[in-house]
Design a protein around this nucleic acid. Structure first.
Lengths: 184, 184
DNA sequence: AATCTCCTGTAGCAGTTGCTACATCGATAG
DNA sequence: CTATCGATGTAGCAACTGCTACAGGAGATT
């Protein structure tokens, strides 16, 4: 039955194209018709591949989360374990990189949409942020830290905050601010 | 000419009600008709008081920025000047306060909307963030700091990052994270 | 009294939104 | 060869978007 395969394969491919579209344009252009156009199909077919708009968006965002995690893993290995300040420095160096920065910008938009209670984003923001915290905690030197989850959260706050800063004051000042973090 | 006064007074009042609506509901319900309903007028009259939707939103956001600045000023005086860590602790204590937290959440939404290039937000995010930076810089001990603007930006990043964290992982972990900031 | 200007309600327009009903085509199973 | 079923296009609906044309009413001016 090659038909069924065709539909699943198409859905996979469409999800990839939606992910690429989200990374490049953010959440600004996410109507059904625009998502469909970005994937090279009709809006009718998009709703044939996916149950509804939230399903299509969720599929694209899932790809993005996986890609971002893979990029972070590749950039910073799980060993050696680091203290907060050097881990922040390394992580910020990654997240402000040209290839990764669009993902962080998208991440900010997802959290804001989640804050508004928008359907697919509220459900997806929590697991992604939990994944971030796991990722940080696994790279954190546990010696003498009685609440490493909180330490990881503080580090995530700095990383996210610098990404936010880049949006509203520009990358120049954001980079200078990043250089201050380990000098407190 | 009491007529003209009536219109200006109404516009002021409507702007206040829009601001209150934005603080309580965020940017989720910002259609003309919903803004008008929140202000107790018809959408037709909203466009009589303001040039267009962006104008109405801008008026409401202007009130909000002024209110937030006033709350911050009242909570943390310009003297004495503080080092980064204690200033962060004091500022976070304010911004996670029940009355101020909705403003921070709204601020996150504004920055995200600005990242998407939405009309009124892109224009308003920059001056507000500059105001934040001025506010921080004015309270920062300048001794031995050759780039206090960058230091202020780093502090703003932490404050904003903790506000963001509160959205996606909840206030409990966010508070624990805030307690870690001055222990690095 | 007549007019004029400010104010405000009614109605609606053109565009976009998410989504769906229906028809069709082509391949495959019987 | 026919019937079935997956895949796809056409057309459209109801709701909502920002915004506007038009008319009328109330007070001020002359």
């Amino acid at each position: 039955m090659p038909r069924q395969l065709s539909r699943d394969a198409s859905r996979d491919h469409v999800a990839d194209l939606i992910a690429a579209h989200l990374v490049t344009t953010g959440l600004a252009r996410t109507s059904l018709r625009e998502l469909a156009a970005a994937a090279g199909v009709s809006d009718r077919m998009l709703l044939y591949y996916f149950a509804d708009k939230a399903d299509a968006l969720g599929a694209g965002l899932g790809r993005i989360a996986a890609t971002l995690t893979a990029m972070l893993d590749a950039a910073i290995p799980a060993q050696p374990r680091l203290h907060p300040a050097p881990l922040i420095v390394a992580a910020v160096a990654v997240t402000t990189d040209g290839a990764v920065a669009p993902y962080m910008r998208l991440w900010i938009e997802i959290v804001a949409a989640a804050a508004r209670g928008e359907v697919p984003f509220a459900a997806i923001a929590k697991p992604i942020s939990d994944g971030f915290l796991d990722w940080i905690e696994a790279r954190l030197d546990p010696a003498g830290d009685d609440d490493s989850r909180a330490t990881a959260a503080a580090i995530l706050a700095v990383i996210d905050g610098l990404a936010l800063l880049e949006i509203c004051v520009g990358s120049d000042l954001a980079k200078r601010a990043a250089g201050r973090v380990n000098r407190w």
